[in-house]
Structures are given as structure tokens and as C-alpha cells.
Amino acid sequence: MAPPKGKPTVMANSSRSDRQDDAILEATWCYYIEGLNQNDIAKRLNISRASVVNYLQEARRREYVRITIDPDIFRHQKLARDMVAKFGLKDALVVPSELTDRGTLERVARGTADWLPTLLEPGDRLGVAWGETVYRVAEAAPHTIMDDLTVVQLVGSRPAALGFAAETCSATLARRFGAHCINLHVPLLLTNKNLADQLRAEPVVAEQLQAVENCNKTIFAAGTCREDSHVVQAGIISAASMRDQVTKGASAVICGRIVDQDGAALPISIEDRMIGVSLDQMRNKDLSLMVGTGPDRIMPMLAAINGGYATHIATCTDTAAAMLETTI
């Protein structure tokens, strides 16, 4: 009996895929372990140099290989030490700035992602904020098992552009670290205070909020108070209300809460309708890692430092130099 039509093609495709996977692994081993150059690998595998390049790129994409630089290099450079000395930080990591803001953010996120595991210990409860910066760190984090680590979502859920929602940030980082994840299964902003109070009183939510309070370490970004800030785009506060807050001295947004240049809270009318970590709960941690880069983050980051919200900072050379030169 003849085999069903199409079956030989499926088997052939599977065979080709297996052979290609083997070639990717062989090229990866030759390049990164044996130190062969791309021409030598092409000759050994009897393929073109372009194929070797593609195989090595595919190996990186699949995370067969992860190139890292010891984060201590970026902690011990002069700008990092100057940041620690001037601002009373426990530590700082400063990576080289890139030509574009996007490129620099990716560098800072990757540097932070490689640094973060060295800052964690068994039994830690890591509170994770939200937004693009934190999301980029989570996405860049290595796949590594962190023993007895709990990752906790610090603010309630809210639709966010490009997937930078709070639950995405915490879940992604927990998955990368093989950690237990506690998400905060409530909206960040409710329509009225009574509903917010009722939700806080629900046993499951109360337990999650207790986990938020019990975090001994956090990672967050200090947001801007511009009309295009994350909290405005997410609909937490209107552009008009943000402009009004700026006239009152608003300088930074920390986990959805607005602070002035001294880091003091500037309560807004929606405070009693928000569910998430409080500003008081963001202070006095074993580690509070603030990540940020760019000219628009200089004043927000300084405000967070003044308010005692940051013990560690990860940024770029341009931002660090500007912060050191800024008088407030």
C-alpha cells in the first residue's frame, strides 16, 4: 500500500530541520568553545560563511548562547563610584551610553538584568513595578534558577501599551528566574473608594497586599510627570491633571504615586481608589533597585533618591554624568 500523500514531505522537512538544528549546535560549539573563526567553521561543515553567520545568530536568538560582561566592571568605574559617594547609595551600575535613546535603554536593561541575580539571595521577596523600563529588564533577564525567590507584583493591573502591564513585568521576571510569582489580581484604579476598600478587604486580595508589604527588595523606575508619561497614557491621570500637578511641584511618578523634587508625596484625588504599593512601603528596603536612562529621567531619579526610595541605581554614562552635575 502506498503511503499517504504528503507524508514523505513531512518526514523530509523534519529531517532537514533536524540536520539544521545539528548544524546550529555544531557551529555554536566550534565558535564559542573551540574558538574557530567563521571561515574555518564553514569549511568544516561544508557550508557558506553566510550560513555560519545565520546559524550563530539563530543560536543567540534561541538563547543557546548568552554573552555577558561581568557587571562588576560597570560598578567599579568612576561614574558609578561617584554616584554612590554623592547620593549615599549602596551601589550603582553605569553602562556606556549608545547613540540612540532606544539603544541605550536596551543596554541599561541588559546590564541590569545581568546584575540583578547577583543582588538576590534565597528567601528574598522581590517586588516588581511596571512600565517599559522594568519590562525590558524582565525580558533581558537570563534563564536561571534563583533558589527560594518570590516575585511580587507591586501595583494592580491596568492596560498598558506594548504589553508593559504590571502583571506582565512580574510574571516574565518570575519565569526567567524560576521563581514563585504572586500577582495582584485587582485593577490599579477603581471607580470609587468603597469598591476599592471592599476589594482590599477580600481575603485573597488582602493576602496579596500583605505580600506586597512584605517585599524586602524591589525593582522600579522613576517615571516622568510629562503629558506623555506612562500614568497618563495608561489613563491613571489625565494630561490636564498632570499639568496641574506639575504646577504644584510634581517631579516623579513612583509606582503610580506622584512625588515632588524632595520625594515627598503629592496626594491626588484618585489616591484612595488605587490599589498597590504605597510610597511608605517603597522605603527602607534591603535593596531598592532604580533603573532609568535619558535626559527626561534625570529629575525623576533625583527625586526618588531624595525621597529615600532607591538604594541601588542602574543607568548609563550620559545620565549618570548629568545627575552628578545637576544641582537641586
Rank of each mutant, 00 (worst) to 15 (best):
G88F: 07
A92R: 09
L266E: 03
V10G: 01
C215A: 06
T172C: 10
A109I: 11
T150K: 09
R176M: 10
V52M: 06
D286C: 03
M274I: 01
D148M: 08
I69V: 14
C169V: 11
F164Y: 12
L266A: 00
V259S: 00
T133G: 01
A129F: 06
T133D: 01
D272R: 14
I298R: 11
Q210K: 15
T293E: 09
N284R: 10
E207S: 14
T317G: 03
D124T: 06
D318S: 07
I275T: 07
S14D: 04
Q20K: 10
T172M: 14
A310P: 07
A113I: 02
N214R: 10
E207Y: 11
S251N: 09
D70I: 04
A27C: 13
R176Y: 04
G131H: 03
H230Q: 15
A160P: 07
I145N: 09
Y309W: 08
G88N: 07
G178V: 04
E132N: 12
S251C: 15
L173A: 05
P4L: 13
M1N: 09
L302T: 05
L190P: 00
V65P: 00
L25G: 05
L120P: 06
M301L: 04
F177Q: 09
V95M: 07
E106C: 00
G156K: 08
E213G: 06
E271Q: 13
I73C: 05
R19G: 02
A141P: 08
K78T: 07
V152K: 03
L189K: 08
A240S: 12
Q208G: 02
V277Q: 02
V277D: 01
F177N: 04
C30F: 15
D197Q: 13
I182M: 12
C316A: 15
A201F: 04
V231F: 00
V232W: 14
E167G: 00
A166N: 04
A221E: 03
P295A: 15
R176S: 07
G223I: 01
T9D: 15
K248N: 11
G131N: 07
R16Y: 06
I69D: 11
T68C: 10
I236D: 13
V291L: 08
K43W: 03
D18Q: 12
N284V: 02
G263P: 03
D148W: 01
S278L: 13
T144E: 14
K43V: 13
E227S: 12
N306C: 04
G156A: 07
C181T: 05
A85G: 03
K5D: 08
A250K: 02
T133Q: 00
